[in-house]
Design a protein around this nucleic acid. Structure first.
Lengths: 210, 210
DNA sequence: ATCGCTGGATTGTTGAACAATCCAGCAGAT
DNA sequence: ATCTGCTGGATTGTTCAACAATCCAGCGAT
């Protein structure tokens, strides 16, 4: 019976509120307030803050407080640079049949969500897709790096910015990437994925950065 | 005048002791002991522990304590998987003349250390070399990921395991990689780097893993 | 030898306290 | 009116002491 520590539960609760958009980027988190709201001690909140700051979800400014992280213009390029590195490298190395099946499953999850007009489901399906690609490499470290990057993106590219317009593109594209992967055409799969990431970065930059 | 917080100084001190091999992998760190040794409170030590655990330098086992991280057989492959992803991707994208010059500088640093028979200097020159390659990408996130990976490797592949025999190989190889980079032959530079990483993984596995 | 208990040590968490720092707002000077 | 410098309140950084929860080595009974 795993009983996560209080600090872990606080961190988890904050992660949830961040992902859900309840805490907006730039907002200040006051230790005493959060401690009272969640019914824990201030020291415990501090430990949770340290954890989330290490994940780049919160930003700690010494003597001023912790704030919900914000992605500046440069960060968008930065995030995509990491994604290009680890996603393309992972897909180019292929993976076990089970891992490839997981990629396929994520593609179908997206198609189902599209049929159901489930916009939120589409978003998470896409994240599952890219997570599954990294999972091909069977590397714990790459998986956690990717999970953190995705959490960062959830934080900033929030539901509001995601419209059906975007999704229409990559639904078919994910399918092609997956097919290439299944067929063992790893170079082509990598090229397609790279092209997608480049285009996605451009789109996001056009919307947010300047 | 930046005055790092006490928790940061504790973390820094522990990082130093870890890198220096003063704390060996698997060793247990007792909160009260460290707090007393460094003259700080137990809560502050805990905050430092959280930071280092996030960097994978310490391992936290709930209700049991924190231990100096150990690299299992699988971790070696894992670490090299990350390095292949980010180093090869970085070098394939090239970089500004300044960044390339930094790579060249690391090569020369290694050559100087070799002439001086400075084994320790050779080790850090090599780390600077690979750090400079990742720095080509101008990505803060990639840089910190790489810095953490290198810190992990320092922790485990310690001085004891590094003999001059190893270094002889890559001194010349680093030179070739750097030359290819300078000449704009990015594909070749990437291939050379990839070959080096694969061989290095094999060597390390032969020594440590089983 | 195995099992179960027990007591001491360590971790997890709390609450309170205080120093250090920041910041908004205000008083006075130019 | 704008600037400067102060001040007081709020918040963070850090410590301390306490206690509950958990672990573990050792010991005794079977």
């Amino acid at each position: 019976m795993r009983v996560p520590s209080v600090a872990e539960r606080v961190a988890e609760e904050l992660r949830y509120q961040l992902a859900e958009g309840f805490l907006v980027p730039g907002a200040k988190l006051t230790e005493a307030t959060i401690a009272e709201d969640l019914g824990v001690s201030r020291n415990t909140v501090r430990e949770a803050f340290a954890e989330l700051a290490a994940e780049r979800l919160l930003l700690r400014q010494p003597n001023k407080g912790v704030f919900v992280a914000t992605l500046e213009a440069g960060d968008i390029h930065d995030v995509y640079t990491v994604r290009r590195a680890i996603e393309v490298s992972s897909i180019r190395a292929g993976g076990s049949p089970e891992r490839i099946a997981a990629v396929r499953a994520a593609v179908e999850e997206g198609q189902r969500a599209a049929s159901a007009n489930d916009n939120e489901g589409l978003g998470s399906a896409n994240q599952h897709f890219h997570g599954a690609i990294v999972a091909l490499a069977e590397s714990n470290r790459l998986n956690t790096i990717m999970a953190q990057i995705l959490a960062e993106m959830r934080l900033y590219f929030h539901k509001a910015t995601m419209n059906a317009h975007f999704y229409s593109d990559w639904l078919k594209e994910n399918e092609q990437i997956c097919s290439a992967l299944e067929a063992g055409e790893l170079e082509r799969a990598g090229d397609l994925l790279l092209a997608y990431l480049n285009r996605s970065e451009q789109q996001q930059t056009a919307i947010h950065g300047e």
